[in-house]
Amino acid sequence: MRNLIQIVSLTVLVFTNLLVPSHPVAAQKACVVTDSGDVVCGKLQQDSKNPSTQNNQTIEFETINITLQGCKRSTSTVNCYFLLSPKKDGTGYFYCGGSKMFDTFAREYFCQQGQIGEQKGSNSQYTTMLKGIPLTAIATFREIPTQVKEISALQVGVNLTDYGTPPYQSAVFRSILVSE
């Protein structure tokens, strides 16, 4: 009977952990029942051959949220796609100048072209945004070696203001797979 209670408790614990989203995976706790009936608990360890990569990461600022939707390769060019969600009406800025990515080989690459809505350029682009209406932004990186399959970190600048050109807020995303 005691083993049955342990198994039921363990089953509830495991299913609860599976239903509750959390990251990183390495922070999750798990328990198993051994062949002898003992319950052993510990932390799950990330498999180093299959790194945890995260798309759809969102960073929240006071006036705007930025969500990384993913990065995609086309030959030696990598485009990273974002969704900008304004929290008020204003002018939305996406800063290519100063934006960069770092690969897993300890190299950095600078943004060559930024786009917000239909506005494209090599420095900062801006457009009118309305509260609650998301808009796509794209950061383009060129001359990326084909062996780069994962981005360690990606830093872009964004902001939303109702007056003048503001200093940008830096959004940093980590562990991003580059899709083909």
Score class of each variant (00 low, 15 high):
residue 81 Y to P: 00
residue 49 K to T: 06
residue 105 F to M: 12
residue 58 T to Y: 10
residue 104 T to I: 02
residue 96 C to Q: 12
residue 38 D to M: 09
residue 73 R to K: 09
residue 83 L to M: 09
residue 17 N to H: 12
residue 75 T to N: 08
residue 112 Q to C: 10
residue 30 A to P: 08
residue 109 Y to Q: 06
residue 177 L to T: 07
residue 13 L to Q: 15
residue 41 C to N: 06
residue 46 Q to W: 00
residue 106 A to S: 07
residue 9 S to R: 14
residue 38 D to Q: 15
residue 73 R to E: 02
residue 45 Q to V: 07
residue 40 V to H: 11
residue 18 L to Y: 08
residue 160 L to I: 04
residue 44 L to D: 03
residue 155 Q to D: 03
residue 1 M to L: 10
residue 81 Y to W: 12
residue 40 V to Q: 09
residue 172 V to D: 10
residue 15 F to D: 05
residue 39 V to M: 04
residue 131 K to S: 09
residue 105 F to K: 14
residue 131 K to L: 04
residue 17 N to I: 10
residue 81 Y to V: 05
residue 155 Q to E: 08
residue 124 S to Q: 11
residue 164 G to V: 03
residue 136 T to Q: 14
residue 154 L to A: 00
residue 142 R to Q: 11
residue 55 N to S: 12
residue 180 E to M: 07
residue 76 S to E: 04
residue 40 V to A: 04
residue 102 F to A: 15
residue 139 A to H: 08
residue 57 Q to F: 15
residue 153 A to H: 06
residue 89 D to Y: 09
residue 5 I to K: 14
residue 70 G to V: 02
residue 1 M to N: 11
residue 126 Y to G: 09
residue 35 D to N: 15
residue 37 G to T: 02
residue 109 Y to C: 03
residue 127 T to S: 08
residue 156 V to E: 01
residue 56 N to E: 15
residue 17 N to V: 00
residue 69 Q to T: 06
residue 172 V to A: 06
residue 22 S to M: 12
residue 137 A to E: 08
residue 119 Q to A: 14
residue 92 G to I: 01
residue 84 L to N: 03
residue 27 A to V: 05
residue 44 L to A: 04
residue 97 G to K: 04
residue 116 I to D: 03
residue 158 V to F: 04
residue 96 C to L: 02
residue 111 C to Y: 06
residue 70 G to M: 15
residue 36 S to A: 02
residue 161 T to C: 02
residue 133 I to D: 10
residue 134 P to H: 01
residue 177 L to R: 01
residue 171 A to I: 00
residue 24 P to S: 15
residue 168 Y to W: 11
residue 154 L to S: 05
residue 68 L to F: 04
residue 114 G to A: 00
residue 137 A to R: 08
residue 148 V to M: 02
residue 79 N to C: 01
residue 127 T to E: 07
residue 147 Q to R: 11
residue 153 A to M: 05
residue 90 G to W: 02
residue 112 Q to R: 09
residue 22 S to G: 15
residue 106 A to P: 10
residue 1 M to V: 11
residue 2 R to K: 14
residue 143 E to V: 08
residue 81 Y to N: 04
residue 105 F to E: 11
residue 150 E to L: 02
residue 129 M to E: 01
residue 43 K to W: 13
residue 113 Q to A: 07
residue 157 G to E: 05
residue 170 S to W: 14
residue 102 F to P: 04
residue 40 V to R: 11
residue 11 T to V: 13
residue 127 T to A: 11
residue 47 D to C: 03
residue 165 T to M: 05
residue 100 K to C: 06
residue 175 S to D: 11
residue 62 E to Q: 13
residue 74 S to Q: 14
residue 37 G to D: 01
residue 126 Y to V: 10
residue 139 A to S: 07
residue 126 Y to L: 08
residue 69 Q to M: 07
residue 171 A to W: 00
residue 100 K to T: 06
residue 20 V to Y: 15
residue 168 Y to K: 09
residue 42 G to L: 03
residue 21 P to I: 01
residue 6 Q to Y: 13
residue 130 L to H: 15
residue 149 K to N: 07
residue 22 S to L: 09
residue 167 P to V: 05
